[in-house]
Write a protein that binds this DNA or RNA. Sequence first.
DNA 1: GTTTCGCATATTGCATGCAGAATGGGGCGA
DNA 2: TCGCCCCATTCTGCATGCAATATGCGAAAC
Lengths: 216, 216
Amino acid sequence: MLISRVSLHEEMVSRLRALITDGALRPGSRIDERALCERFGVSRTPLREALKVLASEGLVELLPHRGARVTRLSGRELRDAFEIVAALEALAGELACRNITDDEIERIAGHHARMEEHYRRRELTEYFACNQAIHEAINRAAGNAQLTEMYALVSNRVRRARYMANHSPERWANAMREHEEILDALRRRDGARCGSLLRAHLEHKLYTVEHEIDTE
Amino acid sequence: MLISRVSLHEEMVSRLRALITDGALRPGSRIDERALCERFGVSRTPLREALKVLASEGLVELLPHRGARVTRLSGRELRDAFEIVAALEALAGELACRNITDDEIERIAGHHARMEEHYRRRELTEYFACNQAIHEAINRAAGNAQLTEMYALVSNRVRRARYMANHSPERWANAMREHEEILDALRRRDGARCGSLLRAHLEHKLYTVEHEIDTE
DNA sequence: GTTTCGCATATTGCATGCAGAATGGGGCGA
DNA sequence: TCGCCCCATTCTGCATGCAATATGCGAAAC
């Protein structure tokens, strides 16, 4: 096992990003530099460097001379972000159809099968894990590192919202059907169709999110 | 008039980004912290914060314990970045058709007319300026701030490459025709067509870049 | 009773200092 | 002559200190 010798600021970026995307740090809440320094046992320098990076990722907002706080997306911003995610994922699906191997497809099919099982048992958390695994696998299969990076960037911003969708049974059933079609398009290497399916899938998810979540 | 009181690290981000995208700092070149500190009269702290941000934007690479250097895109990475720019700009065109006002269209038409004039006179620099103005206007018209931001992010990475394309007369003529079609699609608010035209336009530009530039 | 001013406190932004890692060169050995 | 190792120097990464700014509270004025 390789000992992790990442720098403190890099480590802080990862930790803080996880805290934010997992919801431990709530949107709109202030970020207390001193408290975080003590919590992680680092000085302010690496922490502040990390905050600058997270600000450029859009996860936190820096208020001049008034500290930082976790970004809170308005309904409009959430919608805007989803539009981007949808476009990026459509591109990923399209590219994936050009490059994906049978092995990769079968791995995705495996995720899909497990997801279906969790769907039948109404196991939301496990369902989401499989769901995310599929979307990540498609992105990787696209073979465009920068795309993966961009996708993660915008996706992180709406992560909590995505996980709150899929509450209504009809929508959930639709999502499963859509996933089946996506998998099918992948198998047939039909890039155009795969892309448009993914885009529609994300847009439906946005619709769900907007109609099932009023405020966080 | 609001007095601008930007912080040093923010100012450094802007300055360094300009130096990189304008080519003053060449791809692959080392970034000397001390020299830049003296050049701009700031201490290492705000400069290092700025470097972290630029690294997260992909403009510089941080080599652990060995400083920073300006990112140099491989051919593959250039191609990857272009694919993303194309997808984002297609989305921008599509969204723009939903929201754009007649006024905005006419402003773009104005840029287009000037660009055509510079094209006829073979004034490359002025042509590029109009070109960029058009693409930025379309992005703004899309009314999605995060999209504009993402577009700028990836676009910055390939900026020099984009400016090096359009050298062959045939390609240049084609680009002009494509721009006319794009403008036409905007006028007719044909989002789907506008998007696919923009995507094709960018992909053609990539083709040109790849075939006219071997190494930088 | 409400608003505004002023001061004490807390916090941010930047500069600097210090330990440790990387780089480069000279000397030693093969 | 070539290669390797060791040491000096340079530079990076982090901690800390200090000045400037924001915040909160109490008192005074209206």
